[in-house]
Structures are given as C-alpha cells and as structure tokens.
Design a protein around this nucleic acid. Structure first.
Lengths: 138, 138
DNA sequence: TGTTTATAAGTAATTTTTCTCATTTTACCC
DNA sequence: GGGTAAAATGAGAAAAATTACTTATAAACA
C-alpha cells in the first residue's frame, strides 16, 4: 500500500510522467479498501476532470499493475477490481451485493500444494476466495 | 461430475428438453478436467453442428450452472471457464499458458474465517487459487 | 523557455456475453 | 405415427468490458 507520493516517485524512477489525472488515481487508491472497479475510478476522476477517458484509467492501472503496485482481482465474475494492497491477503465476497472484504489472516503455514505436484509446478502464491453473504444481505 | 445420461435426466426432471446440441455439450463436459471456456466448447460443437450459435452454448451452460451441475470459474482474468466437477476443490493456474489444474486436497479443516467476522458473514464455501508456472512454461 | 517525449482524449475496434425474435425441434398425448 | 404446446435454436444485433490507434497536449528537464 503505497502513498500517492511514493507512487509518484516510483513512476518517475521509471521515466514516466506524472499528470494530474494519474495523481488523482493514485490518491483514489491510497488507503482504499473498497476494491474499486475501473468504472468506479473513472467516475470519481471524471468529477474533477470531466474529459478524462477510460483509456487513461485502464492505462494507468495497467502501468501500476505491471510495476506491482496494484493487484487485479478477478474474484467478481462481472468485472475486474483493483486492490492497492499488494501484500498477500485474501477476500470474502458477498454473492448478493458483490462487496469484497479483506481477510488479512496468514494461512500460508496451512496451505501447501500436494507433494505429488511439487515437481511439476512452481508456486508463486495463492489466494483464497471466501463466498457467502454479508449481514446486510440476508 | 455427472454423466451425459444423468444430466439428461436432471434436465428432463426440470421440464427441459434435450436437443442434440445439448447432448453434445453434456458429452464434452463428461469427465472433462480441462476447464474449457465457452469458445472451446463452441468450436467442438460446431464441428458436428456447423450452425450452432454461441447463444446455445451460453444458454446451456447457464442452465447447468443454475442447476448446480457446472461451476463457473473466474480464475482466468480473460474469460470464464466451466468445470463439471462440482465437488469442492481448488485450482492451480499457470500464469503463462493459463492452463488450470485441479487440486482435490481438502483444506477445509485448516481454513476458517477469522472469528471477528463470524457474526457479520455467512460463509458458504471457499476456493483456493494457486498461481505459478507449470513445468513446460519455465 | 524550449525541446523532447510520454501521455490524454477521442474514437474505433475487440472480446466476451446477452438479447430478440422468427423458426425449428422436442416431448407428450392421442 | 401425427398433432400440438412448450421450449430451444440460430442469426444477427446489442451490450458491456476492455484494449488499440491517432493526434494534440502537457510534463520533465536541460
């Protein structure tokens, strides 16, 4: 979870430029635990920069993803969500309202690939999706 | 994992009709561990029934999903995959070739939602996605 | 301040999935 | 086996999400 200032430095170090639109995306992501979709980010930016395009949002998110600064979540079957928390963690998704909640518990000591697959696969990580419903939805 | 004959019965019991296209989809899914996408199923059916449409594929898969006979996997960020194995299990996905492998190990005794969330969420299940690369890809 | 170069905006294209509706097929009853 | 109601198919178009392309603009830095 980097601050907008830190993201600015990281991009500058990679020869990229910081525009007001990008800076606003950084600020939207900072400390954001709501797992916004590209569209939600787009709408927020659009309030301040009415001419912003989806291209800018997607391009910036792609850049951040490639730099490892956001994770692209595919937990919602309808659309991607973006998570600035790049530390390993897990999610609970409400099947009804689709809200996504962070689960920061560390399960790594319990979860291992079966021995029979150790030779065939190199595991870089794992992610647990909990499914169910939240209080407000049932 | 139902056979094509069993799926036929299930649909008939729900007042649905069995067409040659549907039967072929059932057979494609039977004992299928390759997690096909809608397009892959479409292509196979098209070889036998050249006029088949995507509508038919998606409609049939939707029906099977609603009956609980296939699971829709959102593990691949590009498209959905369909899994006739409806028993709880997990997956390893190769980041390079996107191939999906079943992990049938039962982790349920190790994986619990933190106590602090027990009152706010009803968990119906969980799914683990292992990420990494397969032997052929690295 | 000027120059270089990446980026933004706008538009169009792609990809995946869904919808509409006319036509065809299935299941079933006789 | 033929007739009939209900359901499914197929063809095309549409929707929704995402990506690509082109040109004008704006950021970075000398």
């Amino acid at each position: 979870m980097e601050t907008a200032e830190q993201l600015t430095k990281v991009l500058r170090n990679h020869g990229m430029k910081i525009t007001p639109q990008r800076l606003m995306i950084f600020k939207i992501l900072e400390n954001n635990e709501s797992h916004p979709s590209a569209e939600e980010i787009y709408k927020k930016v659009k309030k301040i920069y009415p001419t912003v395009s989806f291209t800018t949002i997607y391009k910036t998110l792609e850049t951040l993803r490639d730099l490892g600064e956001v994770k692209e979540l595919t937990i919602d079957e309808d659309r991607k969500h973006y998570d600035p928390n790049t530390k390993t963690h897990h999610h609970m998704i409400c099947s009804t309202c689709k809200k996504i909640l962070d689960i920061s518990e560390d399960f790594s000591s319990h979860i291992k690939l079966p021995d029979s697959l150790k030779n065939d696969y190199t595991v870089s990580g794992f992610h647990i999706s909990f499914y169910g419903t939240c209080k407000g939805c049932n």
